[in-house]
Amino acid sequence: MLELAIGIILAGCAIGAGLALIAGIGPGIGEGNAVAKACEAIGRQPESKGAVTSTMIMGCAIAETTGLYGLVVGILLIFVAPGIFTGVLKSTLEAMNYLPK
């Protein structure tokens, strides 16, 4: 039974990590919009290319933040959470005398 429980934990963590990365959609659309507008601006005023580009990169990097939240959660779910959850499960079962100590 313990193997099944650990398998469910791992599956849940993997699915959760996958769902967390849906957060990547927002920054993708947002940054695409920003770059499109920057291209338009450069097309209209080629002499202001430097200022537009630096502002765009800065804005893109800030817009990326929400996507990075998803990434951090995903990485935590893959590399950190399974160990913690398995440990909690084992200690709970031990406390309830389901497992030999």
Partner: peptide
């Protein structure tokens, strides 16, 4: 929180 997560997440993603 957002300042630290932004910086940390960017560098960490590169490492991973």
């Amino acid at each position: 929180v957002s300042m630290s997560f932004r910086h940390y997440g960017n560098v960490l993603s590169g490492v991973v």
